[in-house]
Amino acid sequence: MTDATAGGEALPKPPLDIVPLLLPVILALAMIPLIGSASTWVTLTVASLAMGMMIFIMASGLTLVFGLMDVLNFGHGAFIAVGAYVATLILLPMAAWVQADSLWQNLAAVTPAVLLAMAVTGALGLVFERVLIRPVYGQHLKQILITMGGLIVAEQGLYALWGPQIIPLPLPAALRGSFIFGDIAIAKYRLLAMLVGLTVFVVTMLVLNRTRLGLLIRAGVENREMVEALGYRIRRLFLGVFMAGSALAGLGGVMWSLYREQVHASIGNELMILVFIVVIIGGLGSVTGCFIGAVLVAMVANYGGFLLPKLALISDILLMVAILMWRPRGLYAVTNR
């Protein structure tokens, strides 16, 4: 059966809700007169987009886990931290390659580090789901307690294995520096972060919209009971999404550590607040909402930090309050929860 044989004209599609998509653009344009300098504005905007993409990578799996299984995973930060530490297992011994001028030598060190971090955090996700989350499905309070406990155990485990000191993690030599356009400088690593984040977004959207697996995930986010009634084992689907989300958090952890050029055990704990704000702003279960939310959070942090440093600490909370007052279920609500 093809679309053509099914025939018929489609109902008028509901109008595309583009207002949330325009928010980052409007915000960025509104900042031009306030910031004054074009080069500063570009620097802040690129920094926001890069930071937003890294937060999106970390948050995208969590929003699907929220939406699909209604699981409040406060332990997601553990995967961010573990990913960062696992990457050091390759990046530190291969420091000579990381600091070499050759891009290929840099990639030969960074690529296996990223892949190992994603593999380990994906596997850790499997254990985390089986041991901690499976026994507490449908019990939100217990989910919060046990996943926070998991985060604390992971953090302390990292202290025990690697020690309490901050581990320096220099950027690969080829990713240092900036591209200069007149008096505008754009950091190479920020461009890479934007590219990786966009790639993750596009691939995720393609999987969700063009594959049967994606259909199942979207259907499961909306009504997991009905997906089961159609004969699909949603727990297996959830486990797969959980592992993929954990692996992406690991990738985000590596990228963030390289961005900050340091690794410490509380990195996951620190980033979880931003990640949760992004997931809530975006709408539970919405990858598009998560993407927009991540960019907005990063913009508010960067522009706010520049214009009103004293408000920087609470700027993201204020953003969340404003968005939820406007759209109580987030920018792109998917679930009814």
Binding site: D3, A6, R212, L215, L216, R218, A219, E222, N223, E225, M226, V227, A229, L230, G231, Y232, V334
Partner: peptide, 22 residues
């Protein structure tokens, strides 16, 4: 067929039936 119908509203008619055709 549940009382609430439980169609997947974010999916098209075709996609709803694709999922049902296991």
């Amino acid at each position: 067929v549940p009382e609430t119908m439980a169609v997947f509203s974010d999916l098209t008619v075709k996609e709803n039936l694709v999922l049902a055709a296991r």
